[in-house]
Design a protein around this nucleic acid. Structure first.
Lengths: 125, 125
DNA sequence: CACCTGTATCGATGAACGTCGATGTAATGG
DNA sequence: CCATTACATCGACGTTCATCGATACAGGTG
């Protein structure tokens, strides 16, 4: 199971180059569905910690064994990593015995761009 | 019900000036709980649209009547706005007949700071 | 080959969530 | 006062979700 060669359009086509910043225009309903899916993936404490562990791991990647100490069982860790992959936030690659995860910057950049309030018209700030 | 004068520490004390950027260090478990709660609040399409409508509304605020056309019932809109308030993302104030909502920038800034990958050490990028 | 370790999938279970209609409350206007 | 409009709360219902143990699969090692 590797999505470094694309795991298919990442579920319902992720959040990569999407949507003007929040202050500038209303989100369309389809855009809201896509972006909400990404936020939802970060909306669980265990997933957010796993994501953080991958992001801060040396070399920019981590194998499951490096990060699985988050207080839940191994199947649960695997389940959460799958969710993060499906959201387009992580990609994975098997190399020998281990599976390595790394952050996929594009979707993350879409989230940051969406949340950026400093690009709003001055009247709204 | 106004939290412009603080709705109490916003549930379990929100995400305002919290946590180094994702690439720089692991999130602690308590920090992960707090930040995940904020992401979760944005993790529903209807809520994200409501949030977007408030954020992009002229004057930086909107009354419920301005934004409630999102395809769900009035109680559901009210429920979602409450969730966004509890997450510290919106504040509300009653003025006469109407209740006005506006974006609370601090928690949002915390999310943006957390997601900022451009402040990672070069080796990880 | 058999065995061990690392990771993913399956199936079940209980808790959390989104949604609704009904009802309550607050402010305005006759 | 009473009616009306704006919004919140309540209670119920069905769905989604996080979690687990059991099990399957994959790759290395002896």
């Amino acid at each position: 199971m590797s999505n470094s060669k694309a795991e298919l359009p990442v579920l319902e086509s992720a959040a990569a180059p999407c949507c003007p910043p929040l202050g500038t225009a209303e989100l369309s309903e389809p855009d809201a569905v896509r972006m909400a899916a990404a936020f939802k993936a970060l909306g669980d404490p265990v997933r957010l910690r796993l994501f953080s562990k991958v992001a801060s791991h040396e070399g920019g990647e981590a194998c499951v064994c490096d990060i699985q100490d988050v207080g839940v069982s191994q199947p649960t860790v695997s389940h959460h990593l799958k969710k993060l992959r499906e959201a387009g936030l992580l990609s994975s690659e098997r190399r020998g015995t281990w599976v390595y995860y790394r952050v996929e910057p594009s979707v993350l950049a879409g989230l940051t761009a969406l949340l950026d309030l400093d690009r709003r018209p001055a009247e709204v700030r």
